Simulated scan of single mutants.
Amino acid sequence: MDYWDKQARLILKTEMLGAELKPKDVAARLKNTGLGSTTAKALTQRIARGSFNFGFALRVLRAAGVNHLDLEHLPDLTVEPAPGKPRPSAGSKGRTK
């Protein structure tokens, strides 16, 4: 799992916890979104793997009642990193030198 997958997973888990929702609660809310057959166990496994698309993340976030998402803790990819500091990418797996 790379840096960005880990961040996506952590964001979903944090937002669910902040809304005091368990996977079974989110699964119930997802019934009318095209993920109606998603069980709490399947939802937990999918989030734990971190291998989900942005559409899935949006559905889970909305099911958790999220209206705004703060991404300030993530690296700013619009500026060049300091010399010798690599930018987190799909291949960096969250490691920096």
Score class of each variant (00 low, 15 high):
Arg29Ala: 13
His73Val: 06
Arg87Ala: 14
Lys93Met: 15
Asn32Ala: 14
Arg29Leu: 13
Ala28Gln: 13
Gly84Ile: 05
Arg46Asn: 04
Asn53Phe: 05
Asp76Tyr: 05
Gly94Met: 14
Thr96Asp: 13
Ala19Val: 05
Gly18Ile: 03
Val79Ala: 10
Gly55Ile: 06
Lys6Ile: 15
Asn67Gly: 07
Ala48Ile: 03
Ser92Asn: 00
Ile11Arg: 01
Lys41Thr: 12
Arg87Thr: 12
Gly36Tyr: 13
Ala48Leu: 03
Arg46Glu: 06
His68Asp: 08
Gly18Phe: 01
Leu74Val: 03
His68Arg: 11
Lys31Glu: 11
Gly36Phe: 10
Ala90Val: 12
Pro23Thr: 00
Phe54Ala: 11
Lys13Ala: 13
Glu15Asn: 07
Gln7His: 05
Asp25Leu: 08
Val66Met: 00
Ala42Lys: 10
Arg59Tyr: 08
Val26Gly: 04
Val26Ala: 04
Ser51Lys: 13
Thr39Asp: 04
Val60Gly: 00
Asn67Lys: 09
Ala82Thr: 11
Thr78Arg: 09
Arg49His: 06
Asp70Gln: 01
His73Met: 10
Asp70Val: 00
Asp25Val: 09
Ser51Ile: 06
Leu43Cys: 02
Arg49Leu: 10
Leu17Arg: 13
Ser89Pro: 09
Pro23Met: 02
Leu12Lys: 00
Arg9Trp: 06
Val60Asp: 01
Val60Leu: 00
Asp76Asn: 12
Asn53Asp: 15
Leu30Pro: 07
Leu21Trp: 08
Phe52Lys: 00
Phe52Leu: 01
Ala64Met: 03
Leu30Asn: 08
Asp5Gly: 15
Pro23Gly: 04
Thr14Phe: 13
Arg46Ala: 08
Pro88Thr: 14
Lys85Gly: 09
Ala8Trp: 06
